[in-house]
Amino acid sequence: MADREWSTFDVEDIEALTAVYGGNPARWPADRRAAAVRALAHDGAAHELVVNEARLDALLSMVAEPEITAARVDSVVAGALARLDAMAAPASAPAKAAHAGKLETFLPSPFDVVRAALSWLSVRAPQAGWLAGATAAGIMVGVMTLPSASLTTADTGAQTVAAVETAQADVTDMPSLLFTSYTVETRAR
């Protein structure tokens, strides 16, 4: 019905049109409306068809329109926003929990060890630079083979997250500097 040029209308065209869109010309497609209305003015049979369909339209219009109050709309929107919150909450909670109270025990990195060793030697024995380099390299290889550990508060049995502190051994001699581990308790991010 939609693929034709609608310059003229006959009774059959009116019948087909009203069978789909009813008897109210306002509901007819714009490309057909003018020609159809012209046809009605001159064709009594076409006019009768339209009146019959308009009777069915009148019945259909007796169905009450749903009442949509502002309070209902507000409730729907508020409900949707609350559901957005509910969707967002579980997504962020595990991430926070994963970071909360995490306790990490680690050894200084090999780079830190070399840097500390060279710094110590430059103060205590500046003339032995070549020996320091060789010693630091050897120690670095050894340190790289040591495992680091990561523990959670649950693993250690701690029930609360302690205040964040960085505990660094108070050492000044070379062996202690190299082999004392650091314990850092990170704050929940």
Partner: peptide, 30 residues
């Protein structure tokens, strides 16, 4: 808020009850 009233009216016409219509529109908004 702009589109809910018409969407609710459409849903209520199809479903025949207000509570279901409101739930459907809320879901559509999500």
């Amino acid at each position: 808020s702009r589109h809910a009233p018409k969407a609710m009216k459409l849903a209520q016409r199809i479903l025949g009850n207000a509570a279901d219509a409101d739930e459907v529109v809320q879901e559509a908004m999500l």
